[in-house]
Nucleic acid binder design. Structure first.
Length: 259
DNA sequence: ATGGTAGACGCTCTA
């Protein structure tokens, strides 16, 4: 049994730069769980006390200047894990997991991949293979699990606004195959069924008026095992949060799970 | 093939 839950995932592109917007988002939406990516701070710079004041527990895996992932929740998080079991000593802060009530939640920040053929792209592909192994090591497809975050992969052609993005590190057959291997653990994209015709994006480039021209990609996702996925009753992108001065380049993705 | 902007950092890297 899975309790009713409003679950959000948002790449904030610096929790310091997004402080006021994050608090306003929590006050407005009152989500039960929020997965954050790109906090870009060590844990001592993470606003634990202010979030607690807003009614949220937080677990955070931080890093100076880059990456950083967190899970905020109204209920106290249990069974927290930080990073992957085979992480190296200087591994990027890209994965955190916790159990919130009866649902295990992972906040993931997949590597962007830089340019095709680069070392960063090779790291991205390797990281995605390691994530599949991590899921196998920690979970069963029969568990109630939600894998949320910035996947840096647009799964389908209609998740891409401009042909220019096709063939990039974010949208090509190789990364889509790597994503399919993660999905094949026993996950489903719970957002796609609510937007079957595509064209619903979660990220727009800051440059060249990307948002104003709606030159976006759907690269933020919630993938879930059937226990959770069968109970999803809605999924929306909070495009309003991408508008105006001081916005992240990603909009929050919000999923409603019924009981 | 390059540039456009934003964020953190410290005259550059990442996205």
């Amino acid at each position: 049994m899975v309790a009713r839950m409003k679950l959000a995932t948002w790449n904030v592109n610096s929790i310091k730069a997004r402080h006021e917007r994050l608090l306003a988002f929590l006050a407005r939406e009152r989500p039960d769980v929020v997965c954050l990516q790109e906090t870009k701070v060590l844990d001592e710079g993470f606003p634990h006390l202010e979030l607690r004041g807003a009614g949220y527990y937080a677990v955070h895996l931080g890093q100076r200047a880059y990456n950083g992932v967190a899970i905020l929740s109204k209920q106290e998080p249990k069974d927290v894990f930080y990073g992957m079991k085979d992480d190296g000593a200087d591994e990027h802060a890209r994965l955190i997991g916790a159990r919130i009530g009866d649902v295990s939640v992972i906040s993931a920040y997949f590597p962007n991949g830089g340019d095709m053929g680069s070392d960063k792209y090779a790291y991205k592909l390797g990281w995605m293979e390691r994530l599949r192994a991590e899921l196998d090591a920690r979970f069963s497809p029969n568990d109630a699990l939600a894998l949320c975050g910035d996947f840096n992969v647009a799964p389908f052609a209609d998740d891409v606004s401009l042909k220019d993005f096709e063939g990039s590190v974010l949208a090509n057959p190789e990364v889509r195959a790597a994503l399919e291997r993660i999905r094949a653990f026993g996950l489903v994209d719970v957002v796609r069924p609510f937007h079957p015709r595509g064209g619903v994006y979660t990220w727009w480039d800051y440059r060249a008026m990307g948002f104003e021209r709606n030159h976006g990609l759907r690269i933020d996702h919630v993938y879930a095992t059937s226990t959770v996925a069968d109970r999803v009753i809605g999924a929306v992108v909070d495009r309003g949060e991408r508008q105006g001065k001081g916005a992240s380049d990603h909009a929050p993705l919000i999923v409603e799970i019924d009981d």
